[in-house]
């Protein structure tokens, strides 16, 4: 037997089948942390929190414009919370494109046909801002293997115009992929073609048939363009 074959055989050994308390361990960890948090708060902490709550409510009343923890839900598995309202509507300073381009680690496929590996039918935008074209589909892992079903629940669609990029993160929504997004900017719920969507600064999330499409723009692709892209998903 060769070394590679031997290594592969050893990798198939799975001791975790012996584990009988996987769920109990998780519940214990989650409950324990909650109990510790509650204990640490204590009487003194409770008074401090109560005082802070009164102060915040008073401030909200006085200033009138402060909103805390406004949460919008999109579908059953996504929530968006605005921690603070802002009057700054100018999104030109906000850009996530460069940061997104710096990420690494995905598997890239150059054909739109490779969206077939996504767990369900995924829509594609028929509208793109001028100069943008499809570049690649990115999966986080090998979508052609079926040993990890979660790999097929995430897919990034990359569209490029020179160095500028629009990314559409496609995410199958269920219990395992549920999330809460906290923004310290506005969170605005809108309707696009009868589907629920949320706008935050330079980002638009829309859920269609249980799949979340998270559109990231850049300096030159703002909210209006993202709405057009979302409207064109078919």
């Amino acid at each position: 037997m060769g070394e590679d074959e031997f290594l592969e055989k050893c990798r198939q050994v799975d001791f975790s089948a012996e584990s009988e308390h996987k769920r109990e361990i998780l519940e214990k960890i989650l409950n324990k942390r909650e109990n510790i948090k509650m204990k640490k708060i204590g009487k003194k902490g409770t008074l401090v929190i109560a005082a802070a709550a009164v102060l915040v409510c008073a401030s909200a009343f006085v200033y009138g414009g402060l909103r805390i923890f406004k949460t919008e839900k999109v579908g059953d598995y996504a929530a968006y919370t605005a921690a603070e309202e802002t009057n700054n509507k100018d999104t030109s300073d906000i850009s996530v494109t460069t940061r997104v381009n710096e990420t690494a680690g995905g598997n890239y496929f150059k054909s739109l046909d490779d969206k077939k590996y996504f767990i369900t039918e995924a829509l594609l935008p028929s509208y793109l801002p001028s100069g943008y074209a499809f570049d690649a589909i990115e999966y986080f892992g090998d979508p052609t293997k079926s040993d990890d079903p979660n790999v097929n629940k995430f897919m990034n669609l990359h569209y490029k115009n020179g160095d500028d990029e629009i990314i559409v993160m496609v995410r199958y929504m269920d219990e395992s992929t549920a999330f809460e997004f906290v923004s310290n900017g506005d969170v605005t719920k809108i309707d696009i073609n009868g589907n629920e969507a949320v706008q935050t600064a330079n980002k638009l999330d829309i859920e269609i048939n249980g799949v979340m499409y998270m559109l990231y723009g850049n300096d030159s692709v703002g909210a209006d363009e993202l709405v057009k892209i979302a409207q064109s998903l078919e």
Binding site: V100, G141, M169, T177, F179
Partner: peptide
């Protein structure tokens, strides 16, 4: 985004 790129999902308890 980075969490997602590396396989993380969402934030918080999920």
């Amino acid at each position: 985004v980075k969490c997602k790129m590396k396989g993380g999902v969402g934030i918080g308890a999920f």
